[in-house]
Amino acid sequence: MAKILKIYPDNPQESFIVEVVKTLQKGGIIIYPSDTVYALGCDINNIKAMEKLAHIKKMKLDKAQFSIICNDLSHLSDFTRPIDTAVFRILKNNVPGPFTFILEANKNLPLAYKGKKTIGIRVPDHPVPQLIVQKLGHPIASTSIKDDDEILEYSTDPELIAEKYDHLVDIVIDSGYGDNMASTIVDLTSGEPEVLREGKGVL
């Protein structure tokens, strides 16, 4: 059964953040809030956790396009090829925020991402995932939680999310209702921003 932790953005309890980080370090799967929708996450360096995340999403790991959640832009060079000034300016002006930026990947990607030519980088404007990544010391892999409802695309109620994923994840972080609009996906691989999916973020 998943443990529900109430961690609110205005006053996140450090002991709860530590508990979440320890769970990630042990290969656990978490559900966490962001500045857009609720998402599933795990440690990018734990291959078994990554496989479990792919299994929950009913896909093979090598076909998965999990974005990488960072707490700032300092991890960029760990995963991406050198970027020019114009691209960096776009990132700097829109991060943190409701965007997933597609960038060219380098060869230092974690094992689960090996062979990927591009990588989606996300820095949510939400203290909870920022604190988790900061405390963990490196980014987490992430994928949005979709809803089975045809009208409501994304699940917004953490209690209903907890019920649905009770036996699939280790921790559900309840930060109140989430948004029903995902991040805007922007491809920066050509140097010019190309919006691949309209979402909450506006460039």
Rank of each mutant, 00 (worst) to 15 (best):
I145M: 07
E14I: 00
A39V: 12
E194W: 14
T80M: 07
V169R: 00
Y32L: 14
E14Y: 06
T85F: 09
L160W: 00
K114E: 12
Q130V: 13
G137A: 11
E153R: 01
D35Q: 08
S34F: 00
G199T: 03
A39F: 06
A162M: 13
Y177D: 15
S175K: 02
P110T: 15
R81V: 08
S34V: 05
I185P: 14
E14R: 06
I173E: 03
D149S: 12
I161K: 01
A141C: 09
S77C: 09
I83V: 00
I161M: 04
S67Q: 10
T118G: 12
K146V: 13
E51D: 01
L76S: 15
D148C: 12
P139E: 06
K114I: 14
P139Y: 14
I69F: 02
Y154Q: 10
E51V: 01
V169E: 00
I68K: 02
F88D: 09
S34H: 03
I121R: 13
G199S: 10
A49V: 04
L61I: 15
V18K: 12
S77N: 10
T143E: 09
F16R: 10
A112Y: 04
P127N: 13
S74G: 05
K92R: 08
D84H: 15
A182Y: 04
T100A: 09
K116C: 05
Y113K: 12
Q65C: 03
D147E: 13
G120Y: 11
T36N: 05
N94G: 07
P96E: 04
T184W: 15
I29P: 00
Y165A: 07
P12S: 04
Y8W: 06
Y154K: 12
S155P: 02
D72G: 15
L196D: 07
D187N: 06
P158S: 11
K200N: 12
I173A: 11
V95E: 09
Q65V: 10
V128K: 14
I7C: 01
E104G: 11
D35Y: 01
G27Y: 04
D157A: 13
V18S: 08
V186H: 04
T100R: 12
N94A: 09
D179G: 15
T184S: 15
D187R: 05
N11L: 07
Q134H: 06
D78E: 14
K57R: 08
I83C: 02
S142P: 08
I47P: 08
Y32D: 02
L109D: 11
S144E: 08
P96A: 05
I29R: 02
V95Q: 10
T85D: 11
T184F: 05
D187V: 00
T36P: 05
A2V: 04
L168T: 09
A54E: 00
D170H: 13
N93Y: 08
P9Y: 05
I29W: 01
I4V: 00
L76P: 05
L24I: 02
A64S: 10
T143P: 04
A141P: 03
N11K: 14
P82D: 02
S15A: 14
D157V: 10
D170F: 02
V202A: 06
Q134E: 10
D174C: 09
K26Q: 07
L196E: 07
F79E: 13
P110V: 07
T189Y: 14
V95A: 11
D179T: 12
I145V: 11
